[in-house]
């Protein structure tokens, strides 16, 4: 389904000029689209005095002040590592619980399956603001407050339903005959699932992992509420750049650029499956 498609037949009929025009228009729009980000990157290479004293599109004096501050201050680099830690924990945990469930939904009908699936879906749709207070109390009660594991668990609220949803879509694309043949060949379910089925859908798992990573990485409200200092996420750290001397634009921009890098790296690995993944494996 995701095989590369040649230029559409309709496209071949039109003149070469027309195709180029469409392509040029697309890249032009993308250039405008990237202006805010280019601005952020440009700001991150200037120091505060320079930013506030003059307006310039291309920085004349390159300064690495923002980045040096970011890497030398343990509260910045520490919170950055915190974010990476709970995001990775969340990705792994969500996949472990979601894989068998997605298999069940894609292969069997069972009492209440539709209701359960819908109920899972509604948790993806739950406003994070609703959960703030109870999370705050619950995670304190079970000693998970201000720990990476606590944030990872809290993010499973919306990530597990998402993982089940995407994985189910990808698994439904694998013919059921595969399972039957394996059963005839004498495979026990566990061995079949781990050694045959999971490798079959590895691209689907990769895409799911990307989405889990992404949604945990971009979330601020819950992560900020159930942490204080020890597991503080980078996003929360960034809301605290306002001091007596105003906002530290240079440091803030540098930190912003740093938070975009992990996403760009993972996006590159799943680029050819990403569109299908966003459609929840269901195109």
């Amino acid at each position: 389904m995701t095989t590369m498609m040649a230029t559409s037949a309709a496209g071949k009929k039109t003149s070469r000029f027309r195709i180029d025009l469409r392509s040029w228009l697309f890249w032009l729009i993308m250039a405008v689209w990237s202006l805010p980000l280019i601005w952020l990157i440009s700001m991150s290479f200037r120091d505060n005095a320079d930013i506030l004293s003059k307006f310039e599109v291309i920085p004349t004096e390159i300064s690495l002040n923002g980045y040096t501050q970011f890497f030398e201050d343990s509260s910045w680099i520490g919170s950055y590592m915190n974010s990476i830690t709970y995001t990775l924990m969340n990705t792994v945990l969500s996949l472990i619980v979601a894989l068998p469930a997605a298999y069940a939904f894609s292969r069997f009908t069972f009492s209440g399956d539709k209701h359960l699936f819908f109920w899972l879906l509604t948790n993806r749709m739950a406003p994070a603001a609703v959960f703030l207070l109870p999370f705050f109390q619950l995670y304190q009660a079970v000693d998970l407050f201000d720990t990476p594991l606590g944030v990872a668990l809290a993010h499973m609220l919306f990530n597990v339903p998402l993982a089940v949803w995407i994985l189910e879509g990808f698994m439904s694309g694998v013919p059921k005959q595969l399972d039957e043949i394996a059963e005839i060949d004498g495979y026990k379910f566990g061995r079949f699932f781990l050694t045959i089925f999971i490798p079959m859908i590895r691209s689907g798992i990769g895409v799911t992992a990307f989405f889990l990573f992404m949604f945990s990485w971009v979330e601020l409200l819950i992560a900020r509420t159930i942490t204080a200092t020890a597991a503080k996420p980078i996003a929360a750290q960034m809301t605290r750049t306002i001091s007596a001397s105003g906002i530290d634009w240079s440091l803030l921009s540098a930190a912003g650029v740093m938070t975009i890098i992990p996403g760009v790296i993972v996006i590159w690995f799943v680029r050819n499956y990403i569109a299908k993944g966003f459609a929840l494996g269901r195109v």
Binding site: V218, E219, L220, A235, M238, T239, I260, G263, I267
Partner: peptide, 9 residues
């Protein structure tokens, strides 16, 4: 790219 940027960023 805009989708993978933390919301506060």
């Amino acid at each position: 790219i805009p989708l993978i940027i933390p919301w506060n960023v």
